[in-house]
């Protein structure tokens, strides 16, 4: 069953100091606030690495991009490594259109992001 707008982001903790967020639906204006809340909840003191696994996201708009830009800024300020992983070609395209593909650490798979 599809996740509702309020619970479409799963969280996993594969190791100490490491969190993985897994959004499972399209990220648009109606869902970006939920993703933003999940990211801010994860970016806590003691976290060393945050991976956002986008492999289940088929669509993202600029509100999703804005959420991730904000997350990257917070992560950098707190010296937390933030990596995006598993993007589909269509999601990657919006990063390229916005010329933000070089701003983020983008890995092909979640494992690559965990190992980076």
């Amino acid at each position: 069953m599809a996740a509702s707008d309020n619970d479409f982001v799963r969280t996993e903790s594969p190791a100490s100091g490491v969190s993985v967020l897994i959004p499972s639906e399209d990220i648009d204006m109606s869902r970006s606030p939920v993703l933003r809340t999940a990211i801010k909840g994860a970016l806590k003191p003691g976290l060393e690495r945050l991976v956002i696994d986008l492999s289940e996201v088929q669509y993202m708009d600029s509100s999703g991009l804005a959420t991730l830009v904000e997350a990257m800024r917070i992560a950098k300020a707190q010296s937390i490594g933030l990596h995006l992983a598993g993007m589909t070609a269509k999601v990657r395209a919006i990063f390229e259109i916005a010329r933000l593909d070089a701003f983020f650490s983008i890995k092909d798979t979640r494992q690559e992001a965990l190992d980076a």
Partner: peptide, 21 residues
């Protein structure tokens, strides 16, 4: 093609979001 359709949908989405926001 699929990729262009996705981008056109994105352009529409952005336009509608601007109206709403």
């Amino acid at each position: 093609g699929d990729m262009e359709c996705s981008k056109i949908a994105l352009a529409l989405d952005e336009a509608l979001c601007n109206v709403i926001r």
